[in-house]
Write a protein that binds this DNA or RNA. Structure first.
Lengths: 226, 226
DNA sequence: CATACCTTTATTGTATACAAAATCACGTAG
DNA sequence: CTACGTGATTTTGTATACAATAAAGGTATG
């Protein structure tokens, strides 16, 4: 991560996720350049990346603003993930190898340890969970599918609040992963698809339960504009 | 289209579609800048856009090459389109309004005229067909879905050869659109989804029939490298 | 008082120069 | 003959200056 554009990307991204930059805040290139300690050139590149991440929105005249995520938007993302990751699981089931299966087992074993505690290690869960899903996605063997899903999975708007998941929800997640592995062992594509689809849908409800009535990005953190 | 980066984008894109730049050809920023008559700055922006279009591929060291599309890759795209556009049709069915319905009818009427001739007007077909699908996509009411599908639909690798579709296939397409409208009139989401999904899948077979044994981008047009 | 137009100001777009990095070529040692 | 290292060359990354364009504000006029 030595390149300046990466640094700018990470910096701005983190600030949006942390709420330092609230929905609708204008993002002038000059201001961001000073903020990140780099010139405008890498800032422009970072803004492009953030745009495909859908973390920022651009007007027709190319001015940038922090994107606003309604609960409906977030539901859309989960819905698309359910469909696409289900598809990935189906494809992965027919292409599964023993080595990948072994690595999936290892990942989920780590997840099992992390969530079996009274106070689950959420950071480890998130990390291993990501790897678990990434492994399946790669096994699906479709570069295009991988590209599309990457953009959805990386959505950090959701991560911001991932720490609020309840312990029983995390354990349920671990259990569903085990089922998924069973489906893969049997190379049962339809089974894998339906587990995965339900797995993602459940995640959405866990998310929305934890945020009843709250907007995706807390408007209380808004500090600018009258 | 006054901006230089747009000009560069279009120029490079056209050259790739036309086969002037063959799969695997290296795309140096300097060379492209001279080719497009602009500086490297807008070229870099154009390359980013072409990358998300999946028309170019970048190495880990950020060097750019014309992407190579195997038939399997193209099948992947159609498969994803079938799933996502089917999903869009399902959502659109529950959100359909009479004004949109009317516009769909108009579009497909134009398509009907274009394909009823002995020598179908393929350009008109492609244009109206695009509008027809775009209208449904917009009615689905999911910005994320729209973004994802845009990237797939715009795939110009496929357009290159769209002119080779047979007349009966074009008429069949028109007919399926009519069925789709029927499903929308009845607000039958499941019906709309299955018609749309089949519609796209059939389009793939029409495509692959027209290109039996041929690579996606004709290697015969390769003029560079020994 | 409202509106249209013009001036001013801020912001994005482009070009260019230079820095950093990677690739290639070549030569030498094993 | 191969493998490796080193330097030359090409290619990408960044900074900065300037041009073009859009937003903002103020003034004149209906």
């Amino acid at each position: 991560m030595s390149r300046a554009s990466d640094k700018a990307y990470k910096t701005i991204r983190e600030m949006i996720i942390a709420g330092k930059l609230a929905s609708g805040d204008p993002l002038g290139e000059e201001a961001l350049a000073e903020l990140c300690g780099v010139s405008r050139t890498p800032i422009r590149e970072a803004l492009r990346r953030l745009e495909v991440d859908m973390l920022i929105r651009r007007t027709e005249s190319q001015r940038s603003f922090v994107a606003d995520w309604s609960l409906g938007d977030i539901e859309d993302v989960f819905e698309l993930r359910a469909m696409l990751e289900g598809h990935a699981a189906r494809r992965a089931a027919t292409r599964m190898t023993d080595t990948v299966l072994q690595r999936l087992r290892e990942r989920n074993a780590t997840i099992g340890q992390a969530v079996s505690r009274v106070k689950p290690q959420v950071d480890i869960f998130l990390e291993q969970n990501r790897e678990f899903h990434a492994l399946i996605l790669r096994t699906a063997g479709s570069r295009r599918l991988e590209t599309l899903l990457q953009a959805l999975i990386e959505q950090p708007v959701i991560w911001r609040t991932a720490h609020h998941y309840r312990a029983d929800e995390l354990r349920r997640s671990h259990q569903e992963h085990e089922e998924l592995i069973s489906a893969f062992v049997r190379r049962d594509a339809a089974w894998a698809e339906s587990i995965m689809s339900g797995h993602i849908r459940r995640a959405f409800h866990a998310y929305s339960d934890a945020h009843q009535g709250l907007a995706a990005i807390d408007p209380a953190q808004n500090k600018k504009s009258a």
